[in-house]
Design a protein around this nucleic acid. Sequence first.
DNA 1: TGAATGACTTCGG
DNA 2: CCCGAAGCCATTC
Length: 110
Amino acid sequence: MEKSDNFFEKVHEVAKNIPYGRVTSYGAIAKYLSAPRSARMVGWAMNNTNQNPDIPAHRVVNRVGLLTGKHHFDGTNLMQQLLESEGILIKELQIQDFKNVFWDPTLELK
DNA sequence: TGAATGACTTCGG
DNA sequence: CCCGAAGCCATTC
């Protein structure tokens, strides 16, 4: 165990680099990691990331801005509250003005 | 080894 | 971005 793959580290790094009040998608991160097919693995990696308090996993959603991962958080609506606290508007688990708050690592971080 | 699962994405209608 | 189905990839049983 504890193989510390570079893939996971990159996911952690990108997640930590997400600006305040911004969000990104799993696919965007996967694409940034040169693995656009492994979007699911990004989410899986988030499970490890989720255990890290330095990783704002709540800023990562699916491609349409839907909080698909909220079920993996401790609380019931914790993820939404965290995003709302950052100024992001959410309606029925879907981010409003998603394109406006979307942060693309391939464009901004790269 | 093979089958099932999932914090996704893309394609066709 | 509405809806249904297929594809991908790593992990787990």
